[in-house]
Each structure stands twice: as structure tokens, then as C-alpha cells.
Amino acid sequence: MKGKSQAQLDRLKRYLSHPSVNKEKIRKFFLGSKEKNGFIKQLIVYGLLICIGFVYLYPMLYMVSKSMMDLDDLLDTSISWIPSTFNVSNFTQAATAMNYVKTLFQSILVAGLPTLLNVTVCSVIGYGFARFEFRGKKIMMGLLIFSFILPPQITMMPTYVMFSDYGLVGTLKAFLIPSLFGQGLKCQIFILIFYQFFRQVPKVLIEAAQIDGAGYFKSFLRIALPSAAPAILTVFLFSLVWYWNESYLTELYVTGIANKTQMGSLSTLVVQLKNFATSYSSAQYTGGVTQNNNESIQMAATLLSILPVLIMYFILQRNFVESIDRTGITGE
């Protein structure tokens, strides 16, 4: 008994003379050393990141939470985030009002076809700028940058007049023809991405192909293009997303804003969302939906309209974020 306590006392003494936690270690833990960041700094970094991340996600969370509430939950002040019941009726109402399935396919068409054209045409143009030297190239590049800075509104009206003269307004051709000539939505950025990327492809490789008898176009198709997979992916994704989110020009050119009678021939989800109030009331009039329009249904519609791109983003997020690095969008 006595021996045991003596041993304990000894241990305590040893511990006090060489404590495993001393001042130095505490200091190191909180303030960090050369190799490792200290606890305080880590706390600040993570705290900031989590706070800002929450602020970033706040509208999304708000949208998801509101979209599931029914009318009672909306009016109940004690419920702010978590709805009392999981309510799907908002989604079905919004989907009927937006004519969801049909509009979804139309959106994919409206965003997808110009995107495919963009990828093909911009890669050709970017290769032309990157690979060849010709007179006037500098002026052309300057014009490219200039057309990026210029607000699209200034050329919008004459283009609209031109399209309506040729009867292109209200059809998808109004999007397809500009992108066929490298003038689609934000095509300047895509051309620059391809330009940056193809400049990194070693010239020797292409020259070797030419010695082996490949023409200019063949060496582009066989050598340069296969190595540009990251750039192609980046351009594809961004073009798709930007066409998907474009409501202003889509409404003007593709669905046709001036003659409302033609409306409905081609529409996208985002355009539908823009005119949600009117389309909802008309759906209510025809008896498609039963509830009155409220913020829950609006939020459900918003969520539905961005859901396809969200799903795509979560599947391809690695490509999205890392491709920017690889393609050198930052421009050295």
C-alpha cells in the first residue's frame, strides 16, 4: 500500500520535473512552428472559410428549405428553416406551370447545339491564331479583345433587325449562325482559351506530322486536337452553362419577345422562370395547377430550373475547377 503510493509520488515528481506539456509546447501548439501552422491560425482559417462558405451557400439553402414548405409553414413564424412536413406538391405545381419535361428538352437543345458548334469553331480559330504567323494577326487579336469589352447591347439591335429580316428570329438558327462564325455567346473567351492551349503544344510535333505528309488541317485534327482534351472540356462546360443561364438573348432571339403570339415554340427553363408569374397564372386559369402562387412555389421553380446544371456540376466538378488551371485561362 505504502509502496504503491510511493511509486505514484515518484511518478508525480518525475512528471513535474519533466512535464510532457510545458510552456514551450503550448506555445508551439497555439502559435505554430516553421513546419506547421499553429492552432490559432488554423482556427482562424477554418473559421473564416466556414463562415464565408455558409454565406455563399445561404441563398441555396434558403431556396431548398423554402421550396419544401407548404402554406401553413410559410405563415408559421416559429418555422424558419426546417419544414414540418416534406412537401413535394410545390414541385409538382411548379413543374406543371413550367411544362417541365418539354422545356427541359428544349433547354438542352438550345444550350447544347450552339455549344457543340462553339467547341468546333473556336478550336479551329484558336489553332489558327496560335499556330500560324500571318499579317494582321495582332490587329485581329486586338479586335478580339475589343469585342469582349464591348457591351453586347450595342450590336444587339442591328443584329436583331438583321435576323428578323431573314426570318431567323424565333428559331434556333439565331443562336447557331453566330456561333458558326465564332461570334456566339462569350466566344472570345473560348477562342483565347484554345489559343493559350495550342500555343503550348510543341511546334515540332506538328512539323513532324507535316513531314510525314499530313496537311495543315489533318495535323490539326490528328495531333493538336486530341491533346487539347482539357481545353475542349472547359469550353464545352462553360459554354453549356452560359447558354443555359442566358435568358436575355434567348428571349430576344430564340423565343421571340416582340411577337408574343409565337412564344412557346422554343423556350428554356430560365426563360420560363423569368416569366414564371404569368405562366403560372395562365396555368391556373386552364386548371393545370390548383394552388395560388406563393414564394414556396417560386423557390421550387427556381430550384427546378437550375437542377440540371447543378447535377452536372456535382458530377463533373473536378473537371470544372481544375480545367481552368490546366488551360491557362489566366494567360501568362
Binding site: 455563399y56 431556396m63 435568358s247 422562370l273 427556381t302 447543378l310
Partner: peptide, 25 residues
């Protein structure tokens, strides 16, 4: 974190922003 901070680029569009801003989000 990168996923979160890049998320807005994907969803940001006029009508969506308008809806969210109307709701006070």
C-alpha cells in the same frame, strides 16, 4: 471549399438572381 466557392458561377443567371433577391435571400 473550392466546390462551394465556385458553385455560384454555375447557377448565376438573371432570373435566378432576381427570384432570390426578391425573397430577401
Amino acid at each position: 471549399f473550392r466546390l462551394i466557392f465556385f458553385l455560384p458561377v454555375i447557377v448565376v443567371s438573371g432570373p435566378v438572381m432576381g427570384m432570390l433577391a426578391d425573397q430577401g435571400a
